[in-house]
């Protein structure tokens, strides 16, 4: 009977340590959905490219003339839509999960999580604008992947799960993508689409799925 008390003590220590330093409510399902949005967005972008048959995507001088700027704004529109949909979905799902776990969605840990995520991401966003400014378009896609990956790695200290590996994977294919300029769309689809779906599925399977046996 004594031992049971000590077990409870250890369990209590563990929950307090993780609850005070890690944000638990990030939803795996939102990863899957974000990945799907990204794939749909990439498919739309691909179709859009095909409506400009005179345009060669693999030509590195893409997006420099009038036709290009038109295409560019449509691309940007798709990207913003995908981003907005992913953000809104994950915000809603995280809010729901936080409510279920009885965790405050806006607590010191989630604030730190967000700050650590935002710094590399905003840096990356500004850096991409600079790339656009100098017309180095081929490196925009790799740069977004690399900075997004770094943001994930930086944020991973404040949440549970394997988000660090999603970050590493994104940094890696971002670096690989630098060697295949012109294929940015495919790397985007892989990094933001496929990787998120795989990651979300693993997370959902591990943490979210209602399991009959309450393991651990």
């Amino acid at each position: 009977m004594e031992t049971k008390n000590y077990l409870q003590d250890i369990a209590h220590i563990k929950t307090m340590m993780s609850r005070s330093s890690r944000f638990m409510s990030i939803s795996g399902l939102s990863g899957i959905l974000a990945g799907i949005y990204a794939l749909v967005g990439a498919a739309l972008a691909y179709l859009l490219l095909n409506t400009y048959p005179q345009y060669d995507y693999y030509d590195r001088t893409i997006l420099t003339d009038d036709l290009g700027t038109d295409l560019f704004s449509q691309f940007l529109g798709i990207a913003i839509l995908v981003l907005a949909a992913a953000l809104v979905t994950s915000a809603i799902l995280t809010y729901r999960k936080a409510k279920k776990l009885n965790e405050d969605i806006w607590n010191p840990v989630s604030k730190r999580l967000l700050a650590n995520f935002a710094v590399p991401l905003i840096t990356g966003g500004l850096f991409c604008l600079v790339l656009l400014q100098y017309g180095i378009l081929g490196l925009v896609a790799p740069a977004t992947l690399i900075f997004y990956g770094l943001a994930l790695i930086n944020a991973s200290k404040f949440t549970v799960g394997d988000i660090k590996y999603l970050g590493l994977a994104n940094v890696l294919i971002g670096l690989v993508a630098t060697q295949f300029v012109g294929y940015g769309l495919y790397f985007w689809a892989l990094g933001f689409g496929v990787f998120h779906i795989i990651y979300g599925a693993i997370m959902y399977h591990k943490y979210d799925r209602p399991s009959p046996k309450n393991g651990k």
Partner: peptide, 20 residues
């Protein structure tokens, strides 16, 4: 036990954080 656990993994905690 809880207070110490929180303070072991955080640089500091304020009163309300501990309370919550």
């Amino acid at each position: 036990l809880g207070i110490m656990s929180v303070l072991m993994v955080n640089d500091f905690a304020d009163f309300n954080m501990l309370k919550e």
